[in-house]
Computed example of a mutant assay.
Amino acid sequence: MAPDSFKESLTSVEAAAAMAAGIHDVDPAAEVVEVPIADGGEGTALALTPALGGELRTATVTGPTGTPVDAVWGFVPATSTAVVELAEAAGIHLVPVDRRDIWRAGTSGVGELMAHALDAGATTVIVGLGGSVTNDGGLGLLQALGVYVTDRDGTTVTPDAAGMAQADSLDITGMDPRWEDTQVIIAGDVTNPLCGVDGASAVFGLQKGATPQDLGPLDEALRRWVQVLAGGCGGDAGTIRDVPGAGAAGGVGAALLAVLDARMESGAELLLDLVDFRELCRGADLVLTGEGSVDVQTGHGKAPAVVAGSAAQQGVPTVAFGGRVSDSAEDLVPVLFHSVVQVSEPTAPLEESLARGAENLRKHVAEYLRKATEE
């Protein structure tokens, strides 16, 4: 059982448990291994930390709109590894749709979580980027780590996209020197560059509260911001801007690459490697995965696709379950998945489907297994 989260319905841990229950409804003696996964977005800390033998901790940090939020992060004492999930401190789920203001949302809380990790003794910090409501280029995060960012008049800018648009100078001398000996790994869920038609603003801006008229100015602000980043760190703006994943979480990827010399990884592949997934599924009869919506985009490096690819290397078929399954998902069968199964009732209201996510997933897993064994 290796599902991602079903957004607004089930965490990956809950989804794996529901799948396991569906299997046991049909065959109580079946051996079931639950491996909740994530691709860097919501649920990364919850899925990865226990798998690595770590402990979940909670810290009160600055939320995306400036009000405090309680954010969960993970720490693995045996390896001095921390797992920081951006969505916990700057996630889109933290701000109702009618209150989203892309110019005023910031990532200060993510930097505060990273500082907590450093103080706990972490020498490796995995930062899951995904599910953000921000487009500040990681400005707030950097300021929380002690980076000094000013406008042309030498005034400190606000920790949001509006402040990023005014940024003219960046000074990293105030950062904790321990970061020089700390490895930062980006667990990303997208490969978008920072700017352009495939960049952070154009692709994700509207869902974060931008208007169509905001997209051009936001993109231009990120173009200027990467020049400031490069100027303050001695890097090459063009290289930073165009790195796949630099546009993750509204440009946080670019900030971490430039200032902390972070290493970019596929979130899902990183997690599967860390838990030795290929060995876990060796000899299995079937792998079950899933996420909230299964469509043609699922095949482009999203967590269920990475699971299926890893399982295929061991000769194990994978079945994907989705809260919603689009017609385009059929293109993934049999290329990627053995089957795709929708778990919500087509005519049911969305609120009802989300509330009954565990029940529906359990039911459809059991139904699939019954049919498979009959065949």
Score class of each variant (00 low, 15 high):
208 K>R: 06
158 T>E: 15
36 P>E: 13
177 P>F: 10
54 G>A: 02
112 E>T: 09
275 V>D: 14
147 V>L: 06
185 I>E: 11
58 T>L: 00
124 T>D: 08
121 G>K: 08
120 A>F: 02
261 D>H: 15
326 S>L: 15
2 A>H: 12
319 V>S: 12
272 L>A: 06
90 A>W: 10
356 R>S: 06
14 E>T: 02
67 T>P: 00
222 L>A: 14
68 P>G: 06
316 V>D: 01
259 V>T: 15
176 D>C: 12
92 I>F: 02
321 F>L: 02
109 G>C: 04
230 A>L: 04
105 A>G: 09
53 G>F: 05
34 E>W: 01
57 R>V: 04
249 A>M: 07
175 M>N: 03
128 G>E: 02
334 P>G: 09
86 L>M: 15
95 V>K: 00
25 D>T: 01
188 G>E: 01
101 D>I: 10
122 A>Y: 08
83 V>D: 03
168 D>V: 03
163 G>H: 03
44 T>R: 07
253 G>S: 05
319 V>P: 11
246 A>Q: 02
356 R>H: 14
285 D>M: 07
286 L>Y: 13
117 A>R: 08
31 E>T: 15
81 T>W: 08
69 V>C: 10
22 G>K: 14
352 E>W: 05
231 G>I: 10
130 G>R: 10
97 V>I: 11
174 G>P: 04
225 W>I: 07
70 D>A: 12
118 L>D: 06
332 L>Q: 12
319 V>Q: 10
16 A>D: 11
32 V>A: 13
34 E>L: 00
329 A>G: 14
125 V>M: 08
153 D>A: 15
61 V>N: 11
46 L>K: 11
330 E>P: 00
170 L>Q: 08
52 L>P: 02
244 P>C: 12
133 V>T: 14
59 A>K: 05
375 E>A: 11
248 A>M: 08
160 D>F: 06
42 E>S: 09
117 A>M: 09
306 V>F: 00
184 V>I: 15
40 G>D: 09
311 A>W: 03
41 G>P: 11
59 A>V: 06
362 R>Y: 05
277 F>R: 03
190 V>A: 03
356 R>E: 13
307 V>P: 02
285 D>V: 00
264 M>N: 00
106 G>S: 09
151 D>S: 05
342 Q>S: 05
290 G>T: 04
9 S>I: 13
213 Q>R: 13
369 L>K: 08
126 I>M: 03
19 M>A: 11
204 F>P: 01
6 F>R: 07
